[in-house]
């Protein structure tokens, strides 16, 4: 079965160029062995996302994925690339009409870790953001119902952070047996 690209399909690079021409604060990040992505400051995120969703040539009506990432253990790279001790939110956008894709990234300071919610643009983001809040401790400002999603409400800590320590007990129940050793993992 041959797939015919729709006439409106743009390359990832072209999509990002259109966005960064419109918003100088959004820069195109090209890294080896990765698709190019748009690096946006949290303050401009909503404007850029609104443009990506509503511009007829871009038409990103679908938010495929929203992922939190902890850069704490990311191996050193030359300046200008990802920095240590920060968190990142990665948005994967898709246009069903034009069949093109875009990746948008926001880098957050670890101590504040706040980014505007895009749930007003894509309702699906509501739960994605609750999951990232639950597992990474990223606050999505403007989110109507930012509660823990997968872990219990009274859980402490953010399990997917690289410096997460497995709790000794939960609700009075010991989670570690005597003498049990938890491997701190490859990044300890």
């Amino acid at each position: 079965m041959t797939v015919v690209a729709p006439p409106g399909k743009l390359t990832r690079q072209r999509v990002l160029e259109l966005a960064s021409e419109r918003f100088p604060a959004a820069t195109i990040l090209v890294r080896p062995n990765s698709v190019p992505c748009l690096l946006v400051e949290a303050a401009h995120l909503i404007d850029v996302m609104q443009f990506l969703r509503d511009d007829p040539a871009l038409d990103f009506k679908s938010l495929s994925d929203l992922a939190g990432v902890d850069l704490l253990k990311w191996p050193g790279e030359k300046k200008g690339e990802f920095l240590h001790s920060e968190l990142m939110v990665v948005y994967q956008l898709h246009s069903l009409n034009h069949r093109h894709h875009a990746t948008v990234k926001v880098i957050l300071k670890r101590d504040t870790a706040t980014v505007p919610s895009v749930a007003g643009l894509w309702p699906v983001a509501g739960w994605f953001e609750r999951e990232a809040f639950d597992l990474y401790g990223i606050t999505f400002s403007g989110h109507a119902d930012l509660r823990r999603l997968l872990t219990p409400e009274d859980w402490t800590g953010f399990p997917l952070r690289k410096d997460y320590a497995y709790p000794e007990s939960y609700g009075g129940v010991a989670l570690k047996r005597e003498g049990q050793h938890f491997d701190a993992g490859p990044y300890a």
Partner: peptide, 19 residues
Amino acid sequence: PKGEVHHRTEMPRGETGYY
């Protein structure tokens, strides 16, 4: 390679995206 990928496949319950 040191890098990243977002790949989507069609499962019976729809798109499964691995980032």
